[in-house]
Every structure is written in structure tokens, then in C-alpha cells.
């Protein structure tokens, strides 16, 4: 009796969750559907399937790619994200290890300033920071990596410090006895141990930098457009924009993220949980 009741309840729940899944996916699916319709058939009837009259094949994709230079935007996004994440991992892990292992007043102060920077909203520094970038000639895909290192430092140093604290000192002392210098000790012994937290830091920073809009638009937006900046660029005046191209570019912006998620799903979810709990 109870078993039958539980089973029925289970089926009902699965049904409910399946409906919710459809609701969750529907917005992306509707955008995909509209990306194959002529631009004047989108706004008024976004829920209609493309038909013989409205279907335009890949026309929107061709238009959109040309209008915003999608492939160069993709290239800039990829270069900036991969470059920044690599630099952040290397530099902040070294910094975090050093300030955790060599406690002085200065390193302690540094730690608190890094933690403090996490709560400062971007609007607080956006104007002065972009002037600074301008002054120092950092308005290019290389310079922006340095800026991302500065902005990513807070969270990354914080997460690395928490992990370094849990590594037993005896391992590092063994390396000292073997005559390693600090660099060898860090790269041969410590960095490999940091692997799990490195993955978390990499995923959190990659998700942030890939999707970031305001910072790249202020610093390099006039010359180098990343994907979010390029999508926003498509928005001319309200109503005058090419809805078809917009739909197609939204699809192209989502595809890399879905692929990334498909391959690294478990790590992403684990990384996001670890990041959230330590924040």
C-alpha cells in the first residue's frame, strides 16, 4: 500500500520536474527557433515556429557574424579569458602561498586588503580604473589581462590562502632539508598539491571574465569587442535593430558556454559550491 503510494508520488514528482525542465530550457529554445526567422517576423510572434514564409535559413547568422565581427569577438573573448585565468592562477597562488607561510604585519595587512576588495562593487572604481588604464596604455587585449589579475586577485588569493593553510608544514620542511629554493619548493611541491583549489579558482574566474561586459566595454570596447560587448553593440536604437541577427548572435554566444559545461559539468558544479561556501 505504502509502496504503491510512494511510487505514484514519485511519478507525479518526476512529471512535475520534467515540466519545469521544459520551462527552464524553453527561453533558449525560443531564441534558437527565432534565429531562423526573418527579422520582421520575430518581435510580434516569437512563439510561432518558422514556416515557409518566415524561414530564412542561415541568413541571420551570416548577417550577424558580419555586422559584429563575431569571429574576432570570439577570438578576443577566448584570448582574454584564457590569458587572464592563466596569469591569475600563477600569480595569485604564489602570492597566497607567500603571505600564508610568511606571517608579518605587512602580509597580514595585504591579506585583509585583498579580502576587502571582494566587497567593493565595480561601479566604485570603474571611472578611475578606466582612466588609469588609459594613462598606462593598457587599452589592448594584453593590458586588460593585467587589469583582470588585479580584479581577480581578491577572491583568488582568499580561496588559495584557505587551502594553503590546510597543507601540513612537514611536507614543505622536507623540501627545505633536500635543499630546494623557494621557487623549486613552490612549483615542485606546493603547486601540485593546490590542484583542487586551482580548478575552482580557474572555473570561477573563467565564468566571470568570459561573461563580463562593463569592464571590457570601458577599457577596450572601442577597438576590441569581446562577445558580450559585441552583442550589446548590435542594439542600435530601440526598434531599429536587426532582430534576426540578434537572435543568431545570442545562439552563437550560448553555444561555447554549453560546450564548456558539457565537458566540465562536474567540476563546474563542485567549483561553484566550493567558491560560494568559502565566500
Amino acid at each position: 500500500m505504502i509502496v504503491a503510494h510512494k511510487k505514484r508520488w514519485g511519478i507525479l514528482l518526476t512529471l512535475l520536474l520534467s515540466i519545469l525542465t521544459v520551462v527552464f530550457i524553453a527561453p533558449v529554445f525560443i531564441v534558437l527557433m527565432n534565429s531562423f526567422k526573418g527579422q520582421f517576423f520575430i518581435t510580434d510572434a516569437p512563439f510561432a515556429f518558422p514556416d515557409a514564409q518566415t524561414f530564412v535559413g542561415l541568413q541571420n547568422y551570416v548577417n550577424g557574424v558580419q555586422k559584429i565581427g563575431f569571429f574576432s569577438a570570439f577570438g578576443y573573448s577566448l584570448f582574454i579569458t584564457v590569458g587572464s585565468v592563466a596569469v591569475i592562477l600563477l600569480c595569485t597562488s604564489m602570492t597566497a602561498w607567500y603571505i600564508t607561510r610568511h606571517k608579518t604585519h605587512i602580509t597580514r595587512l595585504l591579506y585583509y586588503i585583498f579580502v576587502f576588495s571582494m566587497i567593493v562593487p565595480f561601479q566604485m572604481v570603474m571611472f578611475t580604473m578606466s582612466k588609469m588604464a588609459n594613462l598606462l596604455g593598457l587599452e589592448n587585449p594584453f593590458g586588460i589581462i593585467l587589469i583582470y589579475l588585479g580584479f581577480g586577485a581578491g577572491l583568488s588569493v582568499f580561496l588559495y590562502c584557505g587551502f594553503v593553510k590546510s597543507i601540513p608544514l612537514s611536507i614543505e620542511e622536507a623540501a627545505d632539508i633536500d635543499g630546494c629554493n623557494p621557487l623549486q619548493k613552490f612549483f615542485l611541491i606546493v603547486f601540485p598539491i593546490l590542484r583542487p583549489i586551482t580548478l575552482t579558482v580557474a572555473i570561477l574566474n573563467a565564468m566571470w571574465i568570459w561573461n563580463d561586459y562593463l569592464l571590457p566595454s570601458l577599457v577596450i570596447g572601442s577597438r576590441y569587442r569581446t562577445i558580450p560587448v559585441a552583442v550589446q553593440y548590435l542594439q542600435g536604437g530601440y526598434g531599429s535593430r536587426d532582430m534576426g541577427a540578434l537572435m543568431a548572435m545570442l545562439v552563437l554566444a550560448i553555444i561555447p558556454i554549453i560546450l564548456f559545461y558539457a565537458f566540465l559539468q562536474k567540476h563546474i558544479i563542485r567549483g561553484v559550491i566550493a567558491g560560494a561556501i568559502k565566500e
Partner: peptide, 25 residues
């Protein structure tokens, strides 16, 4: 001898993109 190697890159970036703009702000 190695302190600057470990700290300097992060610190310079942090000063340029966060700390100086924050105080100037």
C-alpha cells in the same frame, strides 16, 4: 631574495586596477 617574485606581479596589478582607483575614487 624571492619575495618580489612571489608578491610583485599580483601587487602591481592590484594597485593599478583596484587600490589606487579606489582611493582616488
Amino acid at each position: 631574495k624571492y619575495v618580489w617574485l612571489f608578491l610583485l606581479p599580483t601587487l602591481i596589478a592590484f594597485l593599478i586596477s583596484f587600490l589606487i582607483p579606489f582611493l582616488a575614487g
